[in-house]
Each structure stands twice: as structure tokens, then as C-alpha cells.
Design a protein around this nucleic acid. Structure first.
Lengths: 194, 194
DNA sequence: ATAATAATACCGACCAGTCGGTATGTTTTA
DNA sequence: TAAAACATACCGACTGGTCGGTATTATTAT
């Protein structure tokens, strides 16, 4: 029960920051905004986070953990099935974190300009690519995929995922993204299947 | 020959704006920055553009015209070949407009928050999707593609393009994007080919 | 158990500087 | 000379971050 209040305050600040960044963007969202939204003073803010960027990185870190967790334990009988099954994550992601989605654009935008943010944002994608590449290697080994270049193929999957995600964020009503996602993956797996 | 000087000034402002937005982002790039970079006074700026957003939209408009122009006249003997050939645009886009690329992130970020920018940024993607869908319909008609849902398949292509582009912007050295692009499209076409 | 002490959490006024935009004046062009 | 093009000076609102000080909680001594 030590720092219960402190942790609550910290979470309030994080939640408010998500909201504000999503609405106004990183630059436009002022620390004062975040504080008043969180019902907390500026002093409290700078007690918990050294800079404005620090809270941004904290949010990013939380997101990556969420995705990592989602990618575990969805293995299916065959590798192509596993990939297709993966698209089931899409509606979950979209639904469970509706207001957070614009944050990703913030992550990417900041990453293109700030080396620190870049390291924290982009580097993990290479981790996902490796993950996919290993899956594809398994598929080749089990005979369900033909002998494609695993790294290139993994990149294809990753690009598609990123593209789907970005469009889903920007144009939620533009298509049935769950359906598109599943069909996309199906087509790609068709193209690589033996 | 009336407004020759005026047009030159206008172009200087536009060029400087591209540079500044790419470096610092829309919010952080100040009008003063743009003006001094363009070697022009603030009065001149507001003589040519009513607001800061107006110059942003002007840049966006120019970009969409460029892409539209690039998509013309690359028709190949068959539809799958046409799509694969399309990936040849990638290095051209990347090379010819290196410093402008981060601007796209700005476009997307702004679009997620501003209805006006959204209309100007996202709506055109539906236009591209229709373009792709028509191509796919042609492919089905000519017998090179099997009977996929044209709209869904077009969305796949578009998502892949967006994903490739975004990753290329964020991580230029992370992969050989030209190669990845070509192989991706190849895989997708394999998945849809008859 | 309780008082004393120390550490943490929090407050809000304040700073120096920046922002987009305007008002007004000067120069260039037709 | 009238209008268009450009320059300069300036405004009020707002920025991220600091700082002196105050509650609140945890630790230790008695």
C-alpha cells in the first residue's frame, strides 16, 4: 500500500496523455492540458516524468508490450493457418484501443525526427520481422510453404500488416478491415503455398 | 509575365515549407522559420497564403498530382505484369523526393485530426483503390486472374503499397525496398493468378 | 504505541521565450 | 497614380519547464 496513491496519479497522467496526444498530437498537446485532464498539478507531472518526451516513450513501451503479448499463443496446426489466424487480432486491436490508435501516427511521426524515439519505435519492427521469418522457415520445413526467401516473405507480411493498420486507423469506415485483413493474408499464403 | 516575381516568391515559400515541415513537422515548423528559409518576410507569406494550413494543403495537392501522373502509362501486356511493373515506381519516388518523404507522415497525422485535411488526404486513396479494382477486373476478364473480389483484392494491393511506403520512409536502410516491393507484388499476384 | 524524522508526492505561480496572425508602412509593377 | 507585392513592428495567447513550499506517507527511536 506504499505508493498506491502515487501509482494512481501516474496512471491518471498516462491515460490523460493518451487522450490528449490522440486528439491534438504530441506537439499541440500541452503539458498543462494533460495535467488538467488528469486532474493533477504540473508539479506532479514533472515529479513522475522527467520530460514531456519521457511520458511519450512510456506510452510507446506499453503498446509494444501489448502487441507482443497478443502475438503469443496463437499457433495453429500449419503455418499458413497461423498467419491467417493472426488477422483475428485486428478487430481486437481496433476495438480494444479505439482512442489510442492515432497515437501510432504520433509514434511514427516522432520517430522520423528523433533518434531516441526511432530506436524505441522502429527497431521493434525488426523483431517482428524475425518472428515472422522464423514462422515461414517452419512452414518451409513442414512442407506447407514453397522455398521462398524467408526474410523477404516476412517483410511482405509485415508491410501488409502495417498498411492495413495505418489505413484502418485513418479510414475506419472505409472498408471491413477484418475481412480485408483475412483475405489479404489468404492471398499472400496462396502465393507462397506449395 | 505579370506576376513573375510573385510566382517565384510563392515557389520559394512552398519549397521552404517542404523543407521545414520535413525537418520539424507541421506544428514545430514555425511560419517564421519558413519565411527566413525562403528569404521572405512574414508579410509576403501571408500575402500568398491565408493561413499556415493553407500552405500545407497546397503541398498535399501537389503531391497527389505527382503520384497520379506516375500511375499513368505504365500498362503492361498482362494485368499481373502491370502490377509488378508498378513497383518500379518505388525507387523513383524514394530517390526523387528524399527529403519530402517525412511530409507524408505529416499528412496522415494531420488527417487523423482535421476534417479538412482528412478529406484532402484520405479520400484520394479510395480513388487509387478504384483504379486498382478496375485493373483487377480487367485481369479477370483477360483470364490472367481468378475470380477474386476486385474491391477486396484492390485493397490488398493498396495496403501493401501503403505499408511498404511507410516502412521505407521510416527505415530506409532496413531493407532493399525495391526488391521487397517487387517480390511482395509477385507473391500477391501468384496468390490471385489463375 | 507514539513522537520525531526523513522521504516522497504534490501544488501552482512563475519564467523566458515562441507561436500564428495583424496592422501599418515601403517598394515595385502596370 | 493605383494596385499589387513585400517588409517591419508588434500583439496576446500559450509553451515546456522550474522552483519554493506544503501535504502525505514511511521509517526509525523511544
Amino acid at each position: 500500500m506504499t505508493q498506491q496513491r502515487a501509482e494512481e496519479t501516474r496512471n491518471n497522467i498516462l491515460d490523460a496523455a493518451i487522450r490528449r496526444f490522440a486528439i491534438s498530437g504530441y506537439d499541440a498537446a500541452s503539458v498543462d492540458d494533460i495535467c488538467s485532464d488528469a486532474g493533477v498539478s504540473k508539479g506532479a507531472f514533472y515529479h513522475h516524468f522527467p520530460t514531456k518526451q519521457a511520458i511519450f516513450l512510456a506510452l510507446l513501451d506499453g503498446w509494444l508490450r501489448t502487441i507482443d503479448a497478443g502475438l503469443e499463443g496463437l499457433r495453429q496446426p500449419t503455418v499458413p493457418e497461423t498467419f491467417v489466424h493472426m488477422t483475428r487480432l485486428l478487430p481486437v486491436i481496433f476495438a480494444a484501443a479505439d482512442d489510442r490508435l492515432p497515437m501510432f501516427l504520433e509514434f511514427w511521426t516522432q520517430a522520423s525526427r528523433d533518434e531516441t524515439v526511432w530506436q524505441a519505435t522502429i527497431a521493434p519492427y525488426r523483431h517482428y520481422r524475425d518472428h515472422f521469418a522464423n514462422l515461414i522457415r517452419d512452414g518451409i520445413a513442414e512442407g506447407s510453404l514453397k522455398q521462398v526467401d524467408p526474410d523477404a516473405a516476412a517483410q511482405v507480411v509485415l508491410s501488409l500488416a502495417v498498411g492495413l493498420f495505418l489505413q484502418g486507423v485513418l479510414d475506419p469506415g472505409g472498408a471491413d478491415w477484418q475481412k480485408i485483413g483475412e483475405e489479404s493474408m489468404q492471398i499472400i499464403m496462396n502465393g507462397m503455398a506449395k
